[in-house]
Amino acid sequence: MQVGTIRPFTIDVPQSALEDLKARLANTRWPEKETVDDWDQGVPLAYAQDLAAYWRDEYDWRKVEARLNGHPNFLATIDGLDIHFLHIRSDNPDARPLVLTHGWPGSVIEFLDVVEPLSADYHLVIPSLPGYGFSGKPTEAKWSVEHIAAAWDALMVALGYTRYFAQGGDWGSAVTCAIGGNHADHCAGIHVNMIVGQPDPATMADLTDDEKAYLARFQWYRTKDNGYSTQHATRPQTVGYGLADSPVGQMCWIVEKCHGWTDCGHQPGGQSIGGHPENALSKDAMLDTVSLYWLTNSAASSARLYWHSFAQFGFGEIHVPTGCSLFPLEIMRLSRRWAEGRYKNIVYWNELDRGGHFAAWEQPDLFAAEVRAAFGVMAL
């Protein structure tokens, strides 16, 4: 895959876009209140109104914009598409290269709090997925997980990193697994905080208590919480119209997952109708990511990753050294014996007592420690 021009990039959202956002928030047409007293029907009206008012009257996009611009930003043309990425070179002469990949509804923002601890020992490359954030929006139906993995591999090599590590969660986990599976000539090892695989059918008659809990959590996700995924995978363009036109729609589409997928005080078993998202993420933290999706008009383009990838999604074996960190409120968790059916060279395994799907964003200290521990037992 060809990597073209790599050039510096500065994020500078026009003030007119921020003023348009405030006007749209002020003119929101609201639905009626839900008929339950929890989050079981989605984001409650009262909380949506409170968060939208804060977004309109108090939130400051320029703060996170300045944080992002505080690191070196670049655009690289890869296979005809501009890819945005942060590139933080470590001062450590023994630092090793590491590419970090986010998922949906994430962004490069979720890694900002781990840049400092990780850059002590790693050269960090943090790309925005195609169609996300400040990366270009694909105009061809080819940017699947495997295609992105090939693009990331080409980018790392173009930056001079012919041997590197890869890390990811959510779609970032799928991309990272594809890098490990398809580009082992350059990738020396991977770490994932969402372990993408399948339970072993031969174990179903002899499940451990933990495995029963993992299956219950994932079954809850499948029966109650994955409507967004079905829509993204089948009709991403249609859902994009509403989210591109309504900032409150975009906000609730994302904040629902900040509630359901974080360790914010849910009921036993992980059914995400209890708890409150601000127990895990602040208003500003959530609105940083919501604003990024809104200001880059990325609702439809980010959703298309599901359409591009689900039809050909697989669970191929991975033989590079692998580290796995299981956070308790992850939506997909595998026991080690299940994971070993796909990951054939697990060199690090740890199950943590707090944290959820957005590990780097929600628990940056724990996440950074896990990454360091996993790659600490791997060699380039």
Rank of each mutant, 00 (worst) to 15 (best):
G4P: 03
G4D: 05
D12V: 04
V13N: 06
P14T: 06
T35S: 07
D38V: 10
Q41Y: 15
V43L: 07
A53V: 13
Y54M: 10
R56I: 01
K63D: 14
G70N: 08
H71D: 07
H71C: 11
H71F: 14
I78A: 12
I83E: 02
H84G: 09
F85R: 08
L86Y: 14
H87C: 12
I88E: 14
I88D: 08
S90G: 10
L98H: 11
W104E: 00
G106N: 01
F111R: 01
D113T: 06
L118E: 09
S119A: 14
Y122L: 07
P127A: 04
L129W: 00
L129H: 05
P130H: 07
G131P: 00
F134K: 06
T139M: 11
K142G: 15
A149S: 10
A150V: 00
A150T: 05
A154D: 07
L155I: 09
Y161F: 15
Y161R: 10
R163H: 15
A166N: 08
G169S: 08
G180S: 06
D185K: 13
C187I: 09
A188M: 02
I190S: 02
G197W: 04
A202K: 13
T203Y: 12
L207K: 11
D209S: 11
Y214D: 12
R217P: 03
Y221S: 04
N226M: 13
N226T: 03
T230R: 03
Q231W: 09
R235E: 03
R235L: 03
G240V: 06
G242K: 08
Q250K: 09
W253I: 01
V255H: 13
V255Q: 08
E256C: 08
C264Y: 00
G269M: 02
G275M: 10
Y293I: 05
W294N: 11
A300F: 02
A300V: 00
A303K: 06
F310A: 00
Q312C: 09
F313H: 13
G316D: 08
M332H: 11
R333K: 12
W338A: 14
E340D: 13
G341S: 04
G341N: 13
N345R: 14
I346H: 08
V347N: 05
N350Q: 15
G355A: 04
D365A: 11
A368E: 02
E370W: 10
A373G: 01
M378I: 00
